[in-house]
């Protein structure tokens, strides 16, 4: 009786061990790796960056938010009627929130007349040294070679460490199922997300792969948003940065934001 039991346990144990080893052998013995090739039209860069030319964005004062609408429509960003559940990729905020450290009590002239009440476009800065990537425990957010800080919605565990780490408030958790709250026509080309994962702007990686400019850039008729390779001296973004003084949000934190603002 005891013998039979011992033998049974031995066999059971070995079977469990065998099952445990299988994934390891599978990983080693994979034959014929699948190669992923990109489209010949894909836009490529050494370092993607965006320039926001606030001087061309004055329509925002009159309620223009074409860029926000284009982004939300392209990415099925849900719209909640309370700020608690909010999901934002690109949005408009006041200059004092976009640049909280630039305050001046006696600001007059251009600052007061033009900038003070102007809604500022803000989005993920795709930092060169992103703290969100540093803290993510599962590499669900990671920096691509071309500088885009990406999100893997299928790996994210929803711990929100990245939200605590981002100094720009660029990240949103899906506090609840976002699908019933997608108010824009559903874009079947882009996945909807499920509750419990973090999301943010990805510089439209999916559009770049097809050779298209980011949706917000394409939507802005005043060309206030310019997107390009900041490492390429002949690019339009470099041209703009050469000709205009520009600032970035919270540069003192050392994250090296790649969204530049021309005031």
């Amino acid at each position: 009786m005891d013998d039979a039991r011992r033998r049974f346990l031995k066999i059971a144990g070995l079977s469990v061990l065998g099952l445990g080893i299988k994934p390891v052998t599978d990983a080693v013995a994979t034959a014929g790796e699948v190669e992923i090739t990109s489209s010949p039209n894909a836009l490529k860069a050494k370092r993607w960056a965006m320039v926001v030319d606030i001087k061309k964005c004055l329509k925002a004062k009159k309620g223009c938010k074409e860029c926000v609408i284009a982004c939300n429509t392209t990415h099925n960003v849900p719209e909640f009627d309370n700020p608690k559940d909010e999901v934002k990729w690109i949005w408009l905020t006041s200059v004092k929130h976009a640049f909280p450290d630039q305050e001046s009590q006696y600001a007059e002239g251009y600052y007061k007349d033009t900038l003070q009440d102007l809604p500022f476009v803000v989005l993920c800065n795709h930092c060169d040294n992103p703290p969100c990537v540093r803290v993510c425990p599962v590499q669900a957010t990671f920096r691509r070679a071309d500088g885009i800080v990406m999100m893997d919605y299928h790996r994210c565990i929803g711990c929100r460490f990245c939200m605590a780490a981002c100094p720009f408030g660029a990240r949103s958790l899906n506090w609840r199922d976002p699908r019933p709250f997608i108010k824009t026509p559903l874009n079947r080309e882009y996945p909807t997300r499920s509750r419990g994962v973090v999301e943010k702007c990805t510089f439209c990686d999916e559009r770049l792969a097809k050779g298209l400019q980011p949706a917000c850039v394409a939507a802005c008729k005043d060309k206030a948003l310019v997107f390009g390779d900041v490492e390429d001296p002949n690019s339009e973004v470099r041209e703009l940065l050469r000709k205009n003084p520009s600032i970035r949000r919270k540069p003192q934190l050392g994250t090296h934001p790649q969204v530049y603002y021309i005031l």
Binding site: P83, K84, E86, N174, W175, R176, D177, R195, G196
Partner: peptide, 8 residues
């Protein structure tokens, strides 16, 4: 979802 809490 976590929206049932007070977190935002």
């Amino acid at each position: 979802g976590l929206g049932i809490t007070g977190m935002s």
